[in-house]
Simulated assay, not measured.
Amino acid sequence: MATVKIPPVLRPSVGGEKTVSADGSNVGEVLKSLASDHPQTQSQLFAADGELNRYVNVYLNDEDVRVLDGLQTAVGEGDTLVILPAMAGGA
Rank of each mutant, 00 (worst) to 15 (best):
M1H: 14
A2H: 06
A2G: 01
T3D: 11
V4G: 06
K5M: 10
K5S: 04
I6N: 12
I6Q: 07
I6M: 14
P7T: 02
P7H: 07
P7W: 06
P7I: 05
P7Q: 08
P8M: 04
V9H: 08
V9P: 00
V9E: 14
L10T: 01
L10Q: 07
L10G: 05
L10R: 05
R11A: 13
R11H: 14
P12L: 10
V14N: 04
G15H: 05
G15R: 11
G15E: 04
G15C: 09
G16P: 12
G16A: 13
E17A: 15
T19P: 02
V20I: 14
V20K: 04
V20D: 08
V20F: 10
S21E: 15
S21A: 15
D23T: 09
G24M: 11
G24I: 06
G24R: 08
G24A: 09
G24E: 07
G24C: 09
S25E: 12
S25C: 07
S25I: 01
N26S: 06
N26I: 03
V27Y: 03
V27F: 02
G28R: 08
G28D: 00
G28C: 05
G28S: 01
E29A: 15
V30F: 06
V30T: 07
L31W: 14
L31V: 09
A35C: 05
A35K: 09
S36G: 12
D37M: 10
H38I: 04
Q40C: 03
Q40N: 12
Q40L: 14
T41G: 01
S43R: 13
S43P: 02
L45Y: 09
L45C: 05
L45N: 02
F46V: 02
F46Y: 11
A48F: 00
A48G: 02
A48N: 06
A48R: 10
D49G: 07
D49L: 10
E51M: 13
E51P: 00
L52D: 05
L52G: 08
L52R: 06
N53I: 08
N53W: 09
N53V: 06
R54A: 14
R54L: 13
R54S: 15
R54P: 06
Y55G: 11
Y55V: 07
Y55P: 01
Y55H: 13
V56N: 00
N57F: 01
N57K: 06
V58G: 09
Y59M: 11
Y59V: 03
Y59S: 01
Y59C: 02
L60D: 04
L60N: 05
L60C: 00
L60Y: 03
E63D: 10
E63A: 09
D64M: 07
L68Y: 12
D69N: 14
D69Y: 03
L71K: 06
L71A: 07
L71W: 06
Q72M: 12
Q72H: 11
Q72S: 15
T73K: 04
T73C: 08
A74Y: 07
V75Q: 11
V75T: 10
V75G: 07
E77V: 11
E77W: 00
E77R: 08
G78N: 12
D79Q: 11
D79K: 10
L81G: 02
L81I: 00
V82M: 00
I83L: 15
I83T: 02
L84D: 03
L84R: 10
P85V: 05
P85T: 01
P85E: 06
P85Q: 03
P85K: 04
M87R: 01
M87V: 15
A91F: 13
